[in-house]
Amino acid sequence: MRILALILQRIAWLVPTLAGLVAVVFFISRVIPADPVAKLAGETASRAQIELLREKLGLDRPLLVQLVDYYRQLLSGDLGTSLFTTRPVWDDLYARLPATIELTIVAMMIAVVIGIPLGVVSALYRNTIIDHVLRIITVAGLAVASFWLALVLQLYFAMDLGWLPLQARITGFPPPSITGFYIVDTLVEGNFTRFRNVVAHLTLPAFTLAFPALATVVRFTRAGVLETLQKNFVVYQRAMGIPSGLIVWKYVLRNSLISTVTQIGLLFGILLAGTVVIETVFQWPGIGAYAFEAILQSDYAAVMGFTVYAGVVFGIVNLVVDIGHAILDPRGTGA
């Protein structure tokens, strides 16, 4: 019941936000110069030809009309046609979605699976060498430019040592498309050579993407655990002789995770922003690289498609965060 209410609440929030977002990007990309039609028509096109094309694309009408049109189109599930790939934007996004999701989820898992235990350890061994080292790493994680880190890692692990591939998602043929996630598909296929190949390609981009998120998780978990450790119920459980490992990893962690979970929304923001840069550097055939390409080409429909995608992802992530809260905190006091 509570979960259903949360979902409805989120949707009620998401729809106007998305509409506003679309409007903002719409105006940014159309009011401000750079004539994409001229670009599309080619250098040799005459004025008349350009105008004809403009009319054909419906770009000659008032902006507000175009916006309303676009809303109507969106509501019917149509994201428009990319000016440059000449394919429906939806198809482009759909084809590239698995690559981005795979990359993002692996990065998220790296951040969470490594970050939470490191955060706990950092808190438990506060002000020891372990803690200091971890804190230096986390401060660095939030200060390093991801494209530079990517380059340094490429330089060392791919070019110098030759341990990992430089870029791309796979060498040779992709696995038969079942889920679109190469990790899953290669496993289902049972082709372990290809699986290893896929994992090798994923390692550098996923780690680079994960690094700032990892740092954030460690910081938040550390702070949460430190705060929780001061609580009376921890003193009580220690006084009653409950094994300390259990107190930390079962009881304290759950209380601390509530604040960490709130941050997962933020983390996804970091990751989503990261994909634009990381996918470009690693030639990862995902939505981030697509968005960057689309922006460079003034590909309206594609830019809008990416914006809608980003907004929806954010909405979904926030919903997941809310549900996570509801599960972790049974009191129902909410965020």
Binding site: K231, N232, F233, M240, G241, I242, Y251, P330
Partner: peptide, 27 residues
Amino acid sequence: RVDDQIRGRRITFIPQDPFASFNPLFR
């Protein structure tokens, strides 16, 4: 031995603040 057989077993504890001494997230 203290952990296993003394604390919470032969010596137990009633805290000062019953409001904060239960973990609020567990039944």
